[in-house]
Amino acid sequence: MQAFKAIFARYGTLSLFAVLLASGCATQPQQYDYAAFKESRPASILVLPPLNSSLDVSATNSMLSQVTLPLAESGYYVFPVTLVNETFRQNGLHNSAEMHEVGLRKLREIFGADAVLYIDIKQYGTTYAVLSSESRVTAEARLVDLRTERVLWEGAATASSAEGRSSGGGLVGMLVSALVNQIVESSTDRSHPIAGITSGRLLFAGRPNGILYGPRSPKYQTDGSAQH
């Protein structure tokens, strides 16, 4: 309070407002409540083929092929994608929506996993504009305990091919850059590697409000967030 009074006395109301605004911008995001996660201590995760809320039909397979790595690297056993898909097909389920409707008890009975991961792809693909073309992938995830049916964790992540691009060089430079980017975006499948970045941001342990380390990780016992 004394600091605010000193600023007000020296610089006036405007500077005091600026200080308050800066303080608000520096507020840290609220810490995720990991109580259920720590109590559950899942070791194995069943990943269902993601729901696809985007307009690109390749989104589900693209994302599904890249979610095992971050989970495995984080210390979990992940059921093989091909095994999961074949098991569902043998039971007459052929698309993600049908698989997501299977009850938790049934999933536990069939696979014996500790938890199931539901993924919903909100955005996948490339958009084109005069001055900016980009491939963007956004996904949400929810981890549910198959033994207690409690939600252990929820999160979301996004990645874009436009990250880190420079807008310098004036209008001519921007037009040239936009043209080059559009050629690259349209001639290559940029969304697939961007989906890999999104998967990493979403599912690698150790990220702010991300999943906790699993029992196969060397950080499982040393990281306080993985203990209870």
Score class of each variant (00 low, 15 high):
residue 153 W to D: 07
residue 164 G to P: 14
residue 127 T to W: 05
residue 146 L to S: 07
residue 165 R to I: 03
residue 101 E to V: 04
residue 98 E to I: 02
residue 103 G to A: 10
residue 132 S to Q: 10
residue 152 L to H: 08
residue 123 Q to D: 15
residue 132 S to P: 11
residue 123 Q to H: 14
residue 74 S to H: 04
residue 83 L to Q: 06
residue 150 R to T: 08
residue 76 Y to M: 00
residue 167 S to Y: 15
residue 73 E to D: 15
residue 165 R to H: 08
residue 92 G to I: 06
residue 146 L to I: 06
residue 154 E to C: 07
residue 151 V to H: 05
residue 140 E to I: 04
residue 96 S to V: 08
residue 73 E to F: 10
residue 142 R to P: 02
residue 147 R to K: 15
residue 130 V to C: 04
residue 160 S to H: 07
residue 84 V to E: 02
residue 158 T to L: 09
residue 137 V to L: 07
residue 84 V to I: 09
residue 154 E to K: 13
residue 106 K to I: 09
residue 149 E to P: 13
residue 123 Q to T: 13
residue 80 P to I: 00
residue 132 S to F: 10
residue 153 W to T: 03
residue 154 E to D: 10
residue 163 E to T: 11
residue 138 T to L: 08
residue 115 A to I: 01
residue 149 E to K: 09
residue 113 A to L: 01
residue 160 S to Q: 11
residue 156 A to N: 13
residue 92 G to R: 09
residue 117 L to E: 06
residue 137 V to F: 12
residue 157 A to E: 14
residue 107 L to E: 07
residue 141 A to D: 05
residue 113 A to P: 11
residue 135 S to K: 04
residue 125 G to D: 07
residue 147 R to W: 12
residue 151 V to C: 00
residue 148 T to W: 12
residue 141 A to Y: 07
residue 157 A to K: 11
residue 162 A to N: 14
residue 88 F to M: 11
residue 86 E to R: 13
residue 163 E to S: 15
residue 75 G to I: 02
residue 158 T to A: 14
residue 100 H to L: 03
residue 93 L to A: 08
residue 101 E to T: 11
residue 104 L to M: 11
residue 127 T to L: 04
residue 147 R to A: 11
residue 121 I to L: 04
residue 89 R to F: 09
residue 110 I to A: 00
residue 121 I to P: 09
residue 84 V to G: 02
residue 124 Y to G: 00
residue 78 V to D: 03
residue 94 H to W: 14
residue 149 E to I: 01
residue 103 G to Y: 09
residue 100 H to S: 10
residue 86 E to T: 10
residue 157 A to N: 09
residue 167 S to E: 10
residue 158 T to Y: 14
residue 162 A to T: 11
residue 144 V to C: 06
residue 118 Y to V: 01
residue 144 V to I: 12
residue 91 N to V: 02
residue 149 E to L: 01
residue 148 T to P: 13
residue 79 F to N: 10
residue 115 A to P: 12
residue 149 E to Y: 12
residue 75 G to V: 01
residue 118 Y to E: 13
residue 100 H to F: 07
residue 98 E to C: 04
residue 80 P to E: 05
residue 105 R to I: 01
residue 153 W to G: 01
residue 74 S to V: 04
residue 121 I to G: 01
residue 142 R to T: 10
residue 163 E to Q: 13
residue 106 K to S: 08
residue 76 Y to D: 00
residue 130 V to F: 12
residue 74 S to C: 03
residue 132 S to K: 14
residue 76 Y to I: 00
residue 73 E to T: 12
residue 165 R to G: 07
residue 101 E to K: 11
residue 141 A to K: 10
residue 134 E to D: 12
residue 136 R to W: 08
residue 165 R to A: 02
residue 146 L to G: 05
residue 152 L to N: 06
residue 137 V to A: 03
residue 128 Y to K: 11
residue 99 M to Q: 15
residue 151 V to Q: 05
residue 78 V to F: 02
residue 131 L to Q: 12
residue 140 E to V: 06
residue 76 Y to A: 00
residue 109 E to D: 04
residue 105 R to E: 14
residue 94 H to F: 15
residue 98 E to Y: 08
residue 127 T to E: 11
residue 74 S to F: 01
residue 129 A to K: 09
residue 156 A to Y: 14
residue 132 S to N: 14
residue 78 V to W: 05
residue 116 V to K: 05
residue 138 T to V: 12
residue 146 L to H: 07
residue 129 A to M: 00
residue 141 A to F: 02
residue 81 V to W: 04
residue 102 V to F: 07
